[in-house]
């Protein structure tokens, strides 16, 4: 039930916002960006939060999806829907091929390998000018049409992206609470024990890596059609880092945390614009401070704070939970 409750609250918020604030730039444009970032963060969280595998190159898959769609629709006049599928296929193959050697690594090594992969992809996007348009990127990407309905306005995109977000939250939460999801999390807890329970850890790692890349590729394609223009800047190493920060900020292994992280990191630059030249400095400073003082994530920290306030002001202090009477000695 808890699973459904969160989803309903999220749906209500997403529906209520445009009703409460009609024709509001923040709601439609920034809201769409938040939803898109949230889906990316959720997909990365599958890999990082649940399976415990760091990736500093997630933006690469987002970019491969976006560029596949852009290239196929502008240079080969493919149908946008078909190009989304093709992008996912390409991403899936690339992710599958690199998953095994990359996921053999752990800790800093894994971080470096995924970082290296991400940078290689972004360099290719800049250098392969014949296909990618080089640093200038690609423009005139046709809009997406669904069953004869062309998604064109900011509000349309808000609706589409919100729907995608709700769908992904639902699917991911179902998955996490299943046999496969537990296998993922077991991997994070103890690889040896997971293997001894009959879990093929190598293939679980590969699968989650590919799944997370596929989701990123899918929203990458949507992003390309939404923006109608893409350039390598949107898929750089820095965006990978931003995605990782969203996940960690929200609190690892929490889908709603990832959404929260996406919300904060998408709004932050919008708010920091007032700092003008100081924007970069303030952003870096905030990033550092949040990680130093709330390493388990802002979402968890806020949750704790709210429940503490709630207890202090609205309820008498709770009695200390009674001991279960079994005082086991810990060796």
């Amino acid at each position: 039930m808890k699973r459904i409750k969160g989803l309903i609250i999220l749906a209500i918020i997403l529906i209520a916002l445009p009703i409460l604030f009609p024709n509001n730039y923040f709601i439609t444009v920034v809201g769409t960006a938040v939803a898109l970032h949230a889906v990316l963060a959720i997909s990365l969280n599958l890999l990082m939060g649940y399976a415990g595998q760091i990736s500093l190159g997630h933006a690469a898959f987002f970019g491969i999806g976006a560029y596949s769609s852009a290239i196929l629709t502008t240079q080969h006049q493919w149908n946008p829907l078909l190009s989304i599928g093709a992008g996912m296929l390409i991403t899936g193959i690339i992710a599958f091929v690199i998953a095994r050697p990359i996921l053999k690594l752990k800790g800093h090594y894994l971080a470096m390998a995924t970082l290296g992969f991400g940078i290689i992809v972004s360099i290719i996007l800049v250098q392969a000018g014949n296909f990618t348009g080089g640093p200038d990127g690609l423009s005139d990407i046709p809009p997406l049409a669904l069953f004869g309905w062309t998604i064109s306005s900011d509000f349309h995109w808000y609706v589409v992206m919100s729907t995608v977000l709700l769908l992904i939250v639902w699917l991911v939460n179902n998955l996490i609470d299943s046999r496969s999801g537990r296998a993922l999390r077991a991997l994070h807890g103890s690889e040896v024990a997971a293997e001894m329970m009959g879990i093929n850890t190598t293939s679980v790692k590969t699968n989650v890596f590919v799944l997370s890349a596929l989701i990123a590729s899918f929203v990458g394609s949507l992003f390309a059609h939404q923006q109608a223009f893409i350039s390598p800047d949107s898929f750089s190493f820095f965006f990978s880092i931003e995605l990782v920060t969203m996940v960690v900020l929200g609190g690892l292994a929490s889908t709603y945390g990832a959404i929260f992280g996406a919300l904060v990191l998408t709004f932050l630059p919008e708010l920091l614009v007032v700092f003008e030249d100081y924007e970069v400095m303030v952003f870096g400073g905030i990033l550092m401070l949040m990680m130093i003082f709330m390493p388990q994530g802002l979402f968890v920290a806020l949750e704790n704070l709210i429940s503490r306030l709630y207890r202090n002001y609205f309820n008498p202090p709770l009695p200390v939970p009674a001991s279960d009477g079994e005082n086991h000695d810990v060796a």
Partner: peptide
């Protein structure tokens, strides 16, 4: 080798994999 990121029930459910 406990899956500390999961509840007791979930730990045992992994055994049912």
């Amino acid at each position: 080798q406990i899956f500390f990121n999961m509840s007791v029930l979930e730990n045992v459910l992994v055994g049912c994999h």
